[in-house]
Every structure is written in C-alpha cells, then in structure tokens.
Design a protein around this nucleic acid. Structure first.
Lengths: 354, 354
DNA sequence: GCTTCCGATGTAAACGGTTTCATACTTAGC
DNA sequence: GCTAAGTATGAAACCGTTTACATCGGAAGC
C-alpha cells in the first residue's frame, strides 16, 4: 500500500510537504497542494493511524473497559459513550467481559498507546492496580467505582437513595414485611441498593435484620428462584424489592406461576427501569437510572480531563435515581399527573408510564 | 513514561534484549531475563501499542462500523462481536451512528492502521466506495449487505423467508386482509421483509398490491402512529405485520388505547424477537433472529479471512429467521410442544414463551 | 591448538508518519 | 542595489518498537 514516501516521490516533493498538505498547514502552495492531493488519490494513499499516533501521541480514541457486556444496562452505557464520543470525534476501543484482575491487566496493557483516556467500570479490588498504572499515562474516568481512586474522575448513580426511596414508598403504602432479592456479592451497585433498603426500614422504625434477604445475581433466573424460595416460607412478605429489573421479571413470572396476584397479594418493585418494565404485567414500579446518560457524562468528564492534562482534578459526579411508580407496587393512583422529587434527600417519585 | 530504552539502559542491556524478554524469544539468558523484568516492573514499563503495531503490522483489533447504535438489535450484534473477539484475543474499535457516506469515509480513514479487519454494516450505496478502499488493506466482513462486494465475506439473516413464514402463518389462520408497517426506506432488512410479505400474499393467491402498506422507521412511535392511521380506515385489516418488534410495541399500544383487543379484533406479528416480546400483553408472535449470533459469526469469518490473507475467498453465510408463535397472532394453541421448521423453504415455526 | 558451531547479545535498519530547523527564492522597503 | 521580511520547501531527527544480521565467547570436535 502507498505510503507518504510514495506520494512524495510521485509528486516530486518531500514527505514533509505531503504531510503538510494532509494536515492543513496552510503554508503550502495551493498548486503544489492540489498536485499532491491528486497523486494521493491516484495512489489511494491513506495515512497510517498507528504511525500518526506514534509521533503525535494522540489517538482520538477512548478506551472502554466493562466487567461484562450483559444486559440492557451495559448496552445503554456503551450507547451513551459512543454517541458522546462521536460528538467529540473520538472512536472507542472496547474491551469487556473481564472476570478477574489478571484479564483487566492484560486488556489495559493492550490498550496502552492506542487510547487517549480510559473509561472503566472497575469490577473488583484486583483491578485497582491496573487503574493506577493506566492513570499514570492517560486520564481515567471510573463508572460506579467501589473505591474512589486519587486523580480519577468518576460518575455514579445514587443507588443508595434510589433504593431507599423505593422501599420508603412501599412502607408508605402500608407494607411492613418487605423482602429483598439482592444482586451478586461484591457488586457495588448491589451493595448500595441493599444499604438503601436497610436504611429505609430503619428510618421507619422497622428492624432491618428481621427482613428476608434472598441472594440473587441480577439475572432473571435468580429472580424466579427467589420467588419460589419466598413462597415456600410463611408468612409471605407483602412486598418484595428486587435489586434490578431483570430479577423482578423472573420474580413476577414465579408469582404468576404460583397463582399469586401482583400487587394484590404481593407488591413488587425493581431497579433500573429497563425498556420492558413499562410493558410487564402489571407494569413494573422501579427506580429509573439513565444508563445512556452515565456514558455520556463519563465522556464529558474525560474530555475535560484530556484538555486539562494530568493536573486535572478528580471530579466526582452523581446521577439521580428516580422512583417510577407504575402498578406492580399497588399504589395505583392514576390521573394525578407527574410527581417528582430529586433522589438526593429521601427519594424521587415519578408516576406514569414513562 | 519509561520506554524500552530506559529499561535497556537501567538493566545494562540493549533494547533488542528487552524486546526479546517481552516477546518470549527464549534465546535469552534466564538470569538476564529476570533482571530485565525486575527493572521493567520498577520503572513501570509497558510497551507502547502504537509502536508495536507499526512494526509488526498487527493490532489485535477489529474495527466495527454500524449505521447507528440504536435499539436492542444493534446492542446484541455488538455483544456477539465483543464476546467472540475476546475469545480470539482481539479488541474492538467501535464507530457507529454514521448517517452518510462521508462520515463512513472519515471513520474508515481514522481506523486505518489501527485494525486488522473491519466488520461493517453498510448503510447505503455511498459507503460502498469506502468498503472497497478498506478492503484493499484489510479483510472486510459485511453484515446484512445490500450489495455483495467482491472479495468480502458476509453474514445475513433470512429476512425474506422469515417474513414470508410469518405472513403465511397469518394466512393459515384465515386472515385475508393483512396490513404491513414497513421499516425505513432504503434499509435492506426492511425491504427484504416487505418482499417476504408480498410473496406470502402472492403464494396464497392474494393480491399484494391490494394490501395496506404503512410506512414506518423501526421506532416505537412510528408503530403507534401506524396503528392510528390503520384504525382511521375502513375496513380495518384483521391482521398487521410490523417490520420489527419496536413498531409492534407501538402498534399494540395504539390498539389498546383505541379499545381494540389483540388478537381477537386484530392479530399482530412482529420481527426480531426482542427480549420484551415474550412479556408484552399479549405476548408477541414474532420472527426470531439471533443478533448476537450474527456478530459471533462475523468474527469467525473475520478470523478465517485474517488467517488466509488477502487471497481468502468471499464466503456468504445466511442465518435463519424463525417464527415464534405466541398469543398476539391468535393461534393460541398451547400444549402442543415445540414445532419447528427451518426458514429455508417456506418458514420456520416455534411455539412457546421462548 | 585450530576450526566449527552455538547460544547470548548488540547494532542498526526498518515501520510511516510529524515537526524543528535550515535554506532558497521572492518581494518589499528605503 | 542592498537588506529585511516572508513564503514555500527540503533535510533530518524523532516517536517506540521489532527483527535481520553481525559479533563474540566458549564448548565441542579432531
């Protein structure tokens, strides 16, 4: 394939001139420029990206590392990152499904020299070292970080207050015996949601230790199993808070299979507000988070960090988690229009289909 | 940051030796190797990817270009690509949301030198030139191509026969007046599905020209509007085939809002089998395609193409589109177990929730 | 004791660009 | 007509690797 030297030779100029033509360095004679361009087209010359980024130290690429690419949530995050990156003329180098620190390290190493920054959802403690090493070379933005890393920006959802608001809502409806299906152990989001659940109970003077906690893993099947487990016990809780919508879907299926009516027999609340939540039977009350917005915000922070160089501070941002009341929780008050509060202090509530 | 020279100097060896240590070239003294490794760790040395790929001409990266990153379908494709890439130790460079040929060209150029191959869903004719130019340097795999490009592998769904099977099923249930909501003009999938719709009518001796065709764009809102449009006409069709599930969702909402019962008053069939299809009210009969599998298959083809070099032939693969019968079409025959046919000749049918 | 071979390492030339600095040639200023 | 300023271009260094080839001891073979 033609290189810059081929073009230079064919056009009878030096490689410096060809480079100038391709980089709009204006100080080149228009006549020469057009000749070079013509030759370049004829030779089908395209500058080599690797060579360019080697000298310029710019790649116009953002690295993205996610623990796993499963479920609608992650897709949305990626969509947000992608969209915002495009707006800034960046491409994204994606590497997901890392189950352990070792893999993260390898992936990080492979990205080095190919990215101008890294957006990362750190799965566990083992990856922190990789973050530190990467951070020494390019800016890093963390998504929902378990531990804040010095010098890294981060964006996170208000998992805690979102969960707290959801459970407070159930309590407000008169529920006293509320169970929870948790997310995978070690997952920050899952833990924060559990913490919010407990806090809401404590706030209402209920004993958090007395509540049934069923372990789950964010997957639909776990929700189904949890439903079976719950129904095997007596007395049944009057409401269940699932740590994410996927498990809520499974739970609803289990309850339906057992002939239980939602919300009459048991109320159900989820978390995430995935696309299908509004279409479930009954429509699922859940806590809405803007996954796409999370990605976009991360890119914005990254752009700031890239601009300001390594001296850039470490901004921490929180994105709201808003309770969306539908029918699965039993407070079927329609026609009241929209009612919202910010999640910041005590919880946000929104009614309606969307 | 430390370069290979820094390590070499500190360890008292040449850069060649350091390079050998990092590339397992065995012909290096174990003692020297461990000293180099130690120094490298102390200096926090990581090889620079751009420099490596410049000399080796290998990037361990696959380019992925999609027309837009919207909807579950594309997310699934990306998941498939990502998963399979990881299995082969490749990363993926993503660039989506290209609305015109110009943007595709720019993106293609930006990728050059950074990728070992390109997986692309070509949105329109204007991008063909870019494909040609890219193909001269690295292998290209096309997804659902409108036009086959000489020397490119491709993977596509059996859109035509899937749609044909769906409509044939409706006809088999006794429907004679069937409307269709089409996808965006110029979209290959949309066109093939329309073609399948017409063929099924013709097969049954019905006049394809007489059927109502409502233009859509694959989005939920378009489905809703199409529903309104259809209900404003008389007589109403007894069944509607939506070119994708997103629009079917909107259609169902419009029908529900108008007090129509599905499938009693009007039967509905979609296409794609997105996750929520099984949870809609009523559960949506649709044509299931394995978007994730499409991505995986594309990667497999790519690996073959990379292996065999530029001489590699141009394989064309087709992935089945299988009709999944649920309740929205009215053939609510439960308890009959699974019934499947391959879509290849006349259509595949599968019953049940999943 | 002299070749021969081999293992370990160094030297230097790529890879394909960008960019600093120098140079040649105009043009303007007086 | 000589200097100063400016414009267009070229030469060469550099970015951080890999790798073909050269070098250099030391062990083996005779």
């Amino acid at each position: 394939m033609a290189t810059i030297r081929d073009v230079a030779r064919a056009a009878g100029v030096s490689i410096a001139t060809v480079s100038r033509v391709f980089n709009d360095h204006t100080l080149v004679n228009p006549e020469t420029a057009s000749r070079v361009l013509e030759i370049a087209t004829k030779l089908d010359y395209w500058p080599n990206g690797a060579a360019q980024s080697l000298t310029t130290r710019r790649t116009q690429t953002l690295g993205v590392m996610l623990p796993e690419l499963f479920g609608e949530f992650y897709s949305e995050v990626i969509r947000g990152i992608d969209r915002q990156s495009r707006a800034h003329d960046y491409q994204i180098l994606l590497s997901s499904s890392h189950s352990n620190g070792e893999e993260v390290l390898i992936a990080g190493r492979a990205m080095l020299g190919r990215i101008d920054g890294l957006i990362m959802m750190a799965p566990d403690e083992a990856s922190i070292e990789t973050v530190e090493r990467v951070r020494r070379r390019v800016p890093v933005v963390l998504l929902n970080p378990r531990i804040e890393v010095e010098g890294c920006c981060s964006v996170a959802f208000e998992n805690f207050s979102g969960a707290r608001a959801a459970v407070a809502h159930l309590i407000g409806l008169g529920h006293r015996d509320i169970a929870m299906i948790t997310g995978p152990q070690g997952n920050v989001d899952a833990e924060e949601r559990l913490r919010g659940f407990r806090r809401a109970l404590a706030d209402a003077g209920l004993d958090p230790e007395a509540a049934a906690i069923i372990p789950g893993d964010f997957r639909e099947a776990a929700g189904y199993e949890a439903g079976v487990t719950l129904l095997a016990r007596r007395p049944w809780p009057t409401a269940v808070f699932a740590a994410n919508d996927g498990m809520a879907v499974g739970l609803l299926a289990a309850l339906a299979a057992a002939g239980k009516r939602v919300p009459r027999d048991i109320a159900v609340v989820g978390f995430d507000d995935i696309a299908m939540a509004a279409y479930l039977n009954p429509p699922l009350t859940t806590v809405s988070v803007d996954a796409c917005g999370l990605g976009q915000r991360a890119v914005d922070l990254m752009m700031g960090a890239i601009e300001s160089g390594p001296t850039g501070g470490s901004l921490r941002q929180q994105l709201p988690a808003v309770l969306v009341v539908r029918q699965s929780c039993g407070s079927d008050i329609t026609g009241t229009g929209m009612l919202e509060q910010t999640a910041g202090d005590g919880g946000a509530v929104r009614r309606g289909r969307k």
